[in-house]
Write a protein that binds this DNA or RNA. Structure first.
Lengths: 217, 217
DNA sequence: ATTGGCGCTTGACGGAGATCAAGGTCGCGG
DNA sequence: CCGCGACCTTGATCTCCGTCAAGCGCCAAT
């Protein structure tokens, strides 16, 4: 029995081969301008999507206007994998981006091969792992830990020197269950502790990986 | 496009037929005493489980001892449906309980029928819906709203008059990302507002369903 | 170069919820 | 019936983070 859960590679690993194959062959490309909706909260779940370029975020709005960001999707990531008949989260273009999509029914009829069913299951499972991590993050972590954990996730995706932050402070805040002010304060604090360095507000570099890992807990 | 998300029936609906069939035929029953582990965090994912009697909780521990409760499972519910090769949450008997299990590999070889694959997918999807709701709950709700929402969930499961609370205050707190004191205060507050009534600490009755729904948002 | 606007940071302050510390209640074994 | 222990509630205080309000830096349009 392990007790430490330092990193979740669900976020890094590529999607299952069977799905990328279908996407490659049948995916229809469409461009989406920054901050436009790809599908809305409440829409029927009909398509399966893949990011080609740019970044996508999923969000959910409560009736009184509070916003929760579900996740961010990068080139190569699948999204729109939702269980129910309708989308509980909306998907929006975080930046100008290109997205491929195929009808779910197409995917299903292409199947019969359990191969593809299993691939969807695997992709869904990966989505679940993200959600589980998100639950722990939101439920039991301090602001500082949340922000540190978030930066670590990003840095894992873009290994090497400088890491880009495609999203603004508000998106981070809504992902972490914080306010922009708190996010900003934690960032300057982490920078003050020489754990991370921000040459500009949308770009950073990890200075002490071990300290960041410790914090993210 | 709908904006309000009052209730999630994922929690109420029965599991897919194909799986209950396999469980009925092949499930091996085992008793578990209160507060004992059914599987541990980090264990290999090998079985699929179903609650026969009693209640099960899933929990995750951070290295520094903070605890997050994943969910509570009632008779008829499937659990142990986790994506990765190892369990990220442990499962424990909340009360003395009886649990049925089948090997995943058994389930898989029984398949080939896509029927069963789809059933697992559906069950997994339902699990995801729970997680999505949990994320919203933890990220963007006040203590009062969290507790109200929790009570509503329970009441939906056990329609009719008195609702039992199988779990203690600590388990509620760890599910909601709060402390026992805060949970307790919110309960007395909700009772003071005549929204709900506690004849004893482990049993309650909803007095104003509409007010409770409003609160849960 | 000037201006305006937007996104980010910073400060001062207040409040929701955590922490610390007693009690209270209930159920069980003696 | 009594007493012990686990669980729950309640109160006092503290602290982290949210709120409110400037101020700053950067880019784009005039």
């Amino acid at each position: 029995m392990t007790l430490a859960y330092p990193l979740n590679d669900a976020r890094v690993a590529p999607p299952p081969a069977a799905l990328t194959g279908v996407m490659d062959r049948l995916g229809v490309r469409a461009g989406h301008a920054k901050d436009t909706e790809i599908y809305a909260q409440g829409d029927d779940v009909q398509y399966l999507y893949r990011v080609v370029s740019g970044v996508v975020r999923t969000t959910r709005l409560t009736c009184d206007g509070r916003r929760q960001v579900g996740d961010f999707y990068y080139p190569g990531d699948l999204f729109g994998l939702e269980p129910g008949p309708d989308h509980r989260f909306a998907a929006e273009a975080l930046s100008d981006c290109v997205v491929q999509s195929v009808r779910r029914t197409t995917v299903r009829t292409m199947a019969g091969d359990a191969e593809l069913d299993r691939a969807i299951l695997e992709a869904t499972s990966r989505e679940m792992a993200r959600l589980q991590d998100h639950v722990l993050l939101l439920g039991r972590k301090s602001a500082r830990e949340k922000v540190a954990g978030f930066l670590m996730q990003l840095a894992q995706r873009q290994p090497g020197g400088a890491v880009m932050l495609p999203m603004g402070r508000q998106d981070m805040a809504d992902y972490l269950g914080l306010t922009i002010e708190t996010v900003s304060r934690m960032l300057t604090q982490l920078q003050g502790d020489l754990i991370v360095e921000f040459p500009s507000s949308r770009r950073f570099q990890v200075k002490q990986w071990d300290a960041l890992e410790d914090l993210a807990a």
